[in-house]
Simulated assay, not measured.
Amino acid sequence: MEGTGGDGPAMAPFSKWRKDFSVAFQYYLERFTPHTLQRWLGTLVVALIYVLRVYYVRGFYVVSYALGIYLLNLLIGFLSPKIDPELEATDGASLPTKDSDEFKPFIRRLPEFRFWYSITKAFIVAYILTFFSVLDVPVFWPILLCYWIVLFALTTKRQILHMIRYKYIPFDIGKQRYGGNKFSRSGSSPRD
């Protein structure tokens, strides 16, 4: 049995490379975290590349449908509160349901960074899957599209009704921002 124990040294360079890649990848992810607009623009570019690939090969509609269902699931997680008053008995940390309740900030079930990262990963995986002809199942794509639109409409309607019922808005629209002094620092007063 000469082959036993021979795999250890051969795997060491691979595991070192994998660890180095993981550290570098995590470093760049952390560097891109505060740059929200640039991250989403990059994801838009990745999505456009995927759409062009599907359009060019005129196939992989089942992969696109599965991608659409996954993106819908991510969107619902992004729009949902971390502690759902409908599902869990709360210990005081819930969304306010009456005017007399104390204000509690909206905390997402799926944070924005993880939402972005999951969407970007999903488009990259779907793009890679378009290179495997086994996954190009022949289907009548307008039926899949209609079914996805109906599913999207029903799911978002349920989510909007949930938002109305528990009185929360998952976006910062209309949030008051404090930017400091409204007047210039030159010492001029508003009466000048």
Rank of each mutant, 00 (worst) to 15 (best):
K98M: 10
K82P: 01
G59M: 05
Q176E: 08
P85I: 02
P81W: 04
R109F: 03
V46T: 10
L151N: 10
N181V: 06
D84Y: 02
T97L: 05
M11E: 03
R18G: 06
S118D: 12
Y56L: 09
F152M: 09
A47H: 01
I49S: 04
F21H: 11
A12Q: 03
A66G: 02
R53C: 01
D136C: 03
T120S: 04
L29C: 05
W141V: 05
F78Q: 07
N73A: 10
A126T: 02
F25T: 11
F131Y: 04
P96E: 15
D7S: 14
G59T: 04
F25N: 12
S80W: 09
E88A: 13
D91Y: 14
P13N: 06
W40P: 00
P111A: 00
Q176G: 02
P105D: 15
A47M: 06
L161H: 12
T33E: 11
K19C: 12
E102F: 04
R39G: 01
D192R: 11
T4Y: 15
R108V: 00
R114M: 08
Y50E: 00
G174W: 11
K121L: 09
D101L: 06
F183Y: 15
I76L: 13
S94P: 01
L144H: 00
C146A: 13
Y56R: 08
A47V: 02
G6A: 07
V51Q: 10
K98I: 04
L79H: 04
E112R: 02
F140I: 08
F78P: 00
L151D: 08
I124K: 02
F106P: 13
T130D: 00
R18M: 12
K175D: 08
S118P: 09
F113E: 06
F21M: 10
L154C: 13
P13H: 05
G6V: 03
G8E: 13
K19D: 12
F78S: 02
T97P: 00
L135M: 04
Y168Q: 07
F183I: 12
G5M: 15
A47Y: 01
L79R: 03
D172T: 14
V45M: 10
Y127I: 01
A12S: 05
K82Y: 08
D136A: 03
I119K: 01
W148A: 01
V57G: 01
L75M: 15
S184W: 07
F131M: 03
I149Y: 10
L48Y: 15
G42C: 11
S133Q: 14
V125L: 05
M11H: 07
R18W: 08
Y27H: 14
T156F: 15
F152A: 03
Y70P: 07
I149N: 08
A24F: 08
M11K: 10
P34T: 06
G5P: 10
S118E: 09
H162T: 13
G92W: 11
T36G: 14
K121H: 05
A93M: 09
S188W: 10
H35T: 03
R31K: 12
V150Q: 08
G8R: 07
S15K: 12
W141I: 03
L95F: 05
G92F: 12
R191A: 11
E30G: 07
F103E: 15
P142Y: 06
I160A: 15
L129C: 06
L52E: 10
A89L: 12
V45A: 14
Y127N: 01
F60K: 00
D91S: 14
